Simulated assay, not measured.
Amino acid sequence: MLIDGLSLLWRQSNWLRQAVGNQRCWFARGNGGIACSAARAARRWHGSMPSAAPSHLPPDRSGISAPPCPSIGRHRRTGSCAAAGCQSGAQAWSLVTDSLVVHVHPKEAQMEATGRDRRLRRLWGSVSGRTVLMPIDQPVTMGPIAGLDAIDAQLTRLLAGAPNAIIGHRGVLRRVPAEAARSTSVVMHLSAGTALSGRGHVKKLTGDVVEAVQLGADAVSVQVTFGVPEETDMLHDLAQVAAGCSRWGMPLLAMVYVAGIDPAEAPEKIAHGARAAAELGSDIVKVPYTGSADSFATVVAGCFAPVVMAGGEPSDSWEDVLLDVKDALSAGAAGVCIGRKVQQHSAPDEALADLHALVHANNLG
């Protein structure tokens, strides 16, 4: 039996040597049965095949380059081609040469959405495509502020208003009731600093993407404060988290602030910070309102990632808050990210209902 098995392996390897000849090959690991074709099928499935492995293709986990394929990373790793409708599985073998293509297709068809896509979809209203986010991370910076001091009771009340997602640190997110988490997504905040230092706007990383995955988070967030000496450190942290998000399929929200300015007087600086956050890999960018629909529109236009409006300091006039929200949405905002103005409202669930009515309205006119 051993001799028969070795003989079979020899015949298979001899067939591959004859088929491939002296040409260079690339492999990606997987499971399934073999299907192969010669140059005509290779051109039909993949178009013109390159004579050398493209330098931009990242190596897979085995350290061997993935096969060339004009599609997204998932298909490059599997050796399938979305443009040709190839339904390859998540870990298919693929061998590519100038004259031969050998595929290995698992039986299951691939799912169209990636993990990142599915997580992002949970953050948006299914009809409006916009979002109502509520940060509850403020006590790390400010202490047990009104509206978040008795956290267990107040969480229940706030979640009754069904924000699309809440943003908090690990300790509070672990206290979110399981039944509430079914209707409200959770975003784990990964940076912190306290007012006790006198420089609470300077943030350091306090968690990572792997922990957020373990926690079951739908996204992560990081704050960057521009215009301070530590700006480059925070940008480095944002980039590091963005790299982790790419590896794990986790959406990233960047909270962007510029120190020492009134956003209404320097909207171009808010636009600069927003664009920098998007350039470094953020999927959503939160910025303060710049005082007018026209100026906020310049921020939105200059940032290719969706922009959401921050709430800022508590306001005596809820009507003014709603007017700002309406103007931001008319300028192209993808939603709001409002915390204290809701949490310190006399009726937080009603305040959230007002935000839902504006943000998820089909007609903002």
Rank of each mutant, 00 (worst) to 15 (best):
P139M: 07
I136Y: 14
H169Y: 15
I145E: 06
R130C: 04
R122S: 06
L120Q: 12
M134W: 06
T141H: 08
L173T: 02
A150K: 13
R157T: 15
H169D: 03
M111C: 08
R157L: 15
I151L: 07
L133P: 02
H169G: 01
D149F: 13
I166L: 03
H105V: 10
R175T: 03
R122C: 02
T156W: 08
D152L: 05
P139F: 14
R174L: 08
A92S: 14
G143Q: 13
V172K: 07
A109V: 09
L95C: 11
M134G: 04
K107N: 15
R116C: 01
V140I: 07
N164K: 08
P106C: 09
L148M: 15
T131V: 11
Q154W: 05
R170N: 08
V104K: 07
A92C: 05
V176H: 05
R118F: 09
A153E: 15
M134I: 06
K107C: 15
G115C: 13
L173N: 00
M111G: 09
Q154V: 03
L173S: 01
I166S: 01
D98P: 07
D98T: 14
H103A: 15
R122P: 00
A160P: 14
W124T: 03
V102T: 10
D137W: 14
V102P: 06
I166G: 02
P139L: 05
H105Q: 10
D152Q: 11
L158Q: 12
T97K: 05
Q110P: 11
A150T: 12
M142P: 09
L95N: 03
R119M: 10
S126D: 09
G161D: 01
P163F: 00
D149Q: 11
D152A: 02
G147N: 01
L123S: 07
S128R: 12
L120K: 12
G143F: 09
G115L: 15
G168E: 02
D117T: 12
L100K: 08
D117F: 11
G143M: 14
Q154H: 03
D117C: 14
H169L: 00
V140G: 02
S99I: 07
T141N: 10
S99W: 13
G147T: 02
D137V: 10
R121H: 07
I166R: 12
G143E: 11
A146W: 06
A160K: 04
V127A: 12
M111P: 12
G129R: 03
I167S: 05
R118I: 15
M134H: 09
P135H: 13
Q110L: 10
A162D: 08
A92H: 06
D149A: 04
L173Y: 13
D98E: 14
S128V: 09
N164F: 02
V172S: 04
W124F: 10
L158T: 00
L148T: 04
H169T: 01
G168V: 02
L159G: 00
R174G: 14
L159H: 01
D137N: 09
S99E: 02
E108I: 04
G168Q: 03
D152M: 06
G147V: 00
A146R: 06
I145N: 03
R170G: 08
A92D: 14
L155K: 05
L158R: 04
G115W: 14
I151P: 08
V102S: 04
V102A: 04
T97V: 02
W93E: 02
S126H: 07
V96G: 04
L148E: 07
A150D: 13
S126M: 08
